[in-house]
Amino acid sequence: MKYSTSPPISRCNSPVPIETGSNLPMPVTYRQDCMGAATKCYKYLRKLLKFEQMDFEFALWQMIFLFISPQKVYRNFQSRKQTKSQFARDDPAFLVLLMCCLCISSIGFTIVLGLGFLQFVKLLFYMIFIDYLVAGLIVATVFWIITNRYLRIDKTQDVEWGYAFDIHLNAFFPPLVILHIVQLFFYNGLINYDTFSSRFVGNTIWLIAVSYYIYITFLGYTSMEILHKTHIILSTLPIILLIYIMTLCAGINISYLVMEFYHYRVV
């Protein structure tokens, strides 16, 4: 009696659809993608408690290159897709380092605005949970829906929500450093005045930060071959430039207004 020596077909990636003769969903073992989004999310969140498994050195490398050459960062995402079948990060080290940067910036805001300890705690809460996590979840979800519904040319694949969130984190980091760290050194001495030069410096800093965010977001979605017309993201730059000119002409200091907003919501 002869036995087949060919390897068994994996149930996770079976090339032939299996007829079950039932309207019920197929068992997990018969699904095309056994490692679904929920499983990936669970594994990602579980790693948040295991600092020894995080590659902080590589995450720091990514942060540096997001300033000087963000294209190299997205080449790494493409390599991950080839080796691990997913664009999204599977290491939360970048997320943790961003939170550390927010803690540092909160200390800077506390000093510049002259806040107390309880106000610092409130500010830190707002920055991490509202400005960072909640806003990030909303922005990533909006881009995820738009790209999958309107920009996708390969209907057999889709944009991972985790990758959309990673793009937001990448694009968020340079503005975070520019607005929450660098700007603080010049705020009281140069920006916090009702003069044209103060408005020019403050609004220009915001223009640079927002432009960074848009450009890095554009690079993130352009790196996906299943998407087209991603240049639409860059079409927002002329609008941002127009708003910048209008605020200068109208005598609006964006940096001052934002700092006052932060001060107002914690006092």
Rank of each mutant, 00 (worst) to 15 (best):
S4R: 06
S10F: 03
S14D: 14
S14V: 00
P15C: 09
V16Q: 15
P17C: 03
I18E: 08
S22T: 13
N23E: 13
N23Y: 07
L24A: 14
A37C: 05
A37Y: 12
A38D: 14
K40A: 06
Y42V: 14
R46H: 11
L48D: 04
F51N: 03
Q53S: 14
F56E: 08
F56M: 05
F58P: 00
M63G: 13
F67I: 10
Y74H: 11
Y74V: 00
K81C: 07
T83K: 15
D90E: 14
L95P: 00
L97A: 07
L98S: 05
M99D: 04
L102W: 09
I104P: 01
S106Y: 07
T110N: 13
V112Q: 08
G114E: 07
I128H: 06
Y132C: 13
L133G: 06
V134A: 12
V134K: 15
V134C: 03
A135M: 11
G136M: 08
G136Y: 10
L137N: 09
T141N: 07
V142A: 15
F143D: 04
W144G: 03
W144E: 10
Y150M: 10
L151K: 04
R152H: 04
D158K: 07
W161L: 15
A164W: 01
I167H: 02
H168T: 03
L169F: 05
L169R: 10
N170G: 06
F173C: 06
P175R: 11
L176V: 03
F185T: 13
L190V: 14
L190P: 02
T195I: 08
F196S: 06
W206M: 11
L207Y: 06
A209W: 05
A209T: 08
I214H: 06
Y215A: 04
G220W: 03
S223F: 02
M224H: 02
E225Y: 05
T230K: 11
I243W: 05
M246P: 01
T247S: 12
L248F: 04
L248E: 15
L248C: 10
G251Q: 10
S255N: 14
M259T: 03
R265E: 07
